[in-house]
Computed example of a mutant assay.
Amino acid sequence: MKTKQIVLGVITLGLIGGGIFAYILYSTFFTPNTRFETDDAFVYIPTDATVEILEERLSPFITDLDSFKSAADKKGYLQNIKAGKFRIKKGMNNNELVNSLRSGNLPVKVSFNNQETLHDLAGRIAAQIEADSISLLAAFKDKSFLNTNGFNEANSLSPYIPNSYEFFWNTSAEGFRDRMFKEYQRFWTDARKEKAKRLGLSPNDVIALASIVHKETAKIDERPRVAGVYLNRLRKNMLLQADPTVIYAIKKETGNFDTVIKRVLYKDLELDSPYNTYKYLGLPPGPIAMPDITAVDAVLNPEKHKYYYFVANVEKFGYHMFAESLTQHNRNKAQYIRWINSRKIKR
């Protein structure tokens, strides 16, 4: 009788212990453990994150960090924390949370356009991926990368074609740069290269000229005509005399790219800079800004005409008046100068 009681007692204790273990196991792995009210939330885990950093990133979203850590430790996640952007859904349990953080790295959309300098581009990208602006700028300026791929300091903005792209948030600075160079190579199809060749331009030349066209007019439908003017000038071995290049030269000379210049003065045209196309023949050493794809394609597909001059159209703002002769241009220019003086625009 005693033996039976002992056996029953042991079995009972075993069942109780098993029940407790099962309860703890269930609580650890399968009890909902989120604390946000929206349908989902996004967590950004940096590269080489420690357990402490992981806790810091998760604490706004998880009710019981200790039970999460216990589950994560048992599943081997704490020994191999993954970097990236992760979605966690309302009501997830620890098992689901760990699985999502282990294998659910989501891409982010990275967009940029019209950046004037590499510094601007680095800042724009750093706001969208993990890499900081200092590491991005160093990658952009890396001489080995530039020399290997046919670029230099002056045209180092050229490989970055403005658009929207998908990246993993934890992409490194070098990873971003190298991916963008692949996009640049994809952009320069055989058809685009052939069009550039027929114009007597290299891809880098096209981007330099497109940057001027982009700055001259925001009107996409006018860009092929403006591109045609500059190409006509290049063929005639005329100075481009593009005001945006003078503005860029002033900014580069002063080191202040935040300067707003609405009017180019005659004294500015004397600035001795390779970017001053009033003094130096041909294209500037590199782009004066990041041109839109529409500006690049405008250069590759220019309007064919006999215009050599243009000035802002004061009756149709945003557009320009074009002229074949200097006499006609001077009449158009006089009208523009009267308008700008009437607005008392000094600089």
Score class of each variant (00 low, 15 high):
T245H: 04
K182P: 00
A22W: 14
P224H: 07
L106A: 10
I53T: 07
H305F: 05
Y77H: 05
D205Y: 11
I53Y: 14
D66Q: 10
T117C: 01
F30S: 10
D297G: 12
L15T: 12
D190M: 04
G282S: 10
R225Q: 12
R263F: 05
G255M: 05
K316Y: 13
A22F: 15
S144H: 01
D221H: 07
I24F: 03
T28I: 11
N332D: 13
D132M: 11
R338V: 00
I81T: 05
L239S: 09
A334G: 06
S172M: 02
S100F: 13
I20C: 09
M180R: 07
A312N: 12
D142C: 09
K143L: 03
K316H: 11
A41M: 08
S27Q: 05
L209G: 01
L15C: 13
K344Y: 03
N147R: 02
L15N: 09
A196P: 08
Y160N: 01
F322V: 02
A173M: 02
A22Q: 11
I340L: 10
F68G: 13
G282N: 04
A122I: 14
H320Y: 00
S158H: 10
N99V: 07
D73R: 07
A196D: 08
L54T: 01
I161E: 06
D258E: 08
N155G: 00
T171L: 11
